[in-house]
């Protein structure tokens, strides 16, 4: 069964004013339990608006968000409990750090869940371990950490709530290549270990191609493509025409096909690219 489902979800901004802007229109997606979903799209394509519906921060203008089959906007209570079931980590989450120590900041979410002291302690240490923060980091002020550490501390703050679904909005934005790798790997490890559903919003096609199993492409406030990563990237040319990037390998294969080489364009990782080339060589077509 789908853990999270949206049904004809539409959100308009400035509904009462003249300049009505639809941020997302008629989005229907089903997200299965334990899935790793990548959401891709331009700035302003509605990605961020969409994920803010997942935990009830935004109320849909029309349509529904179903969590475990139940409408999250049914009552105030369901909307609030959705915030703990769906952990949302915003872009540049380090700007939300505020406590005296990293430990207290990570504990902010679990404390709001009104858990026991020991349970909070367990969760904080577990989350800190996931993101690779050492014990001595926990007693530091969050403002004394380096940029990458701050980011990881903030992500730990969301992980500590142990949500069923973890949603991350551009978790690698503004990080250097090493920082990006660390963050992406820790998210992937987190999913493997906890088995929770992870939704990763990104505009880096390579990241999505490498980590996600399914992908949702948003363009001009609509969900244009939704399926497995293979399916989505086989529409490489469509993605390019939307002004979205595709993984470098995919671009190579699209170009090859244009040149008349008999290849599939659904290739999106270097491994697959290698295999495809080897196959071609064996056939002796090149």
């Amino acid at each position: 069964m789908a853990v999270l489902e949206t049904v004809n979800l539409t959100h308009l901004f400035g509904e009462k004013t003249m300049n009505r802007v639809s941020a997302i229109s008629d989005v229907s997606v089903k997200i299965e339990s334990g899935e790793f979903l990548g959401i891709i799209g331009h700035t302003g394509s509605g990605k961020s608006t969409l994920i803010q519906h997942f935990n009830g921060l935004l109320k849909p203008t029309s349509g529904k968000v179903l969590l475990d089959g139940k409408d999250i906007n049914e009552s105030k209570q369901t909307a609030l409990s959705a915030r703990f079931k769906v952990g949302l980590c915003f872009q540049y989450p380090e700007y939300q750090l505020f406590e005296e120590t990293v430990y207290k900041d990570i504990a902010f979410g679990p404390t709001n869940m009104k858990l026991g002291k020991e349970e909070i302690d367990r969760r904080v240490r577990r989350a800190a371990e996931f993101v690779g923060l050492k014990k001595e980091h926990l007693e530091k002020s969050p403002f004394d950490l380096s940029g990458g550490e701050k980011r990881r501390a903030a992500i730990a703050g969301v992980m500590a709530m142990e949500p069923e679904i973890l949603v991350l909005d551009e978790p690698t934005a503004g990080l250097d290549p090493v920082g990006r790798e660390t963050v992406l790997n820790l998210i992937s490890d987190y999913r493997k270990e906890t088995g929770s559903t992870v939704i990763l919003v990104s505009h880096s096609m390579d990241d999505v191609a490498r980590f996600a199993k399914k992908a949702l492409v948003m363009n001009k406030s609509k969900a244009v493509l939704f399926g497995t990563v293979e399916e989505v990237f086989s529409h490489g040319e469509e993605l390019l025409s939307m002004g979205l990037d595709v993984p470098a390998v995919t671009r190579v294969f699209i170009q090859l096909k244009k040149m008349g080489v008999p290849v599939e364009t659904g290739v999106y990782t270097n491994e697959q690219g290698k295999d495809a080339f080897l196959q071609l060589l064996r056939k002796g077509d090149c």
Binding site: N55, L57, R83, F84, G87, C89, Q96, F108, M161
Partner: peptide
């Protein structure tokens, strides 16, 4: 929004 997402 970020703090609300953490249950504030």
């Amino acid at each position: 929004n970020a703090q609300k997402a953490r249950g504030a």
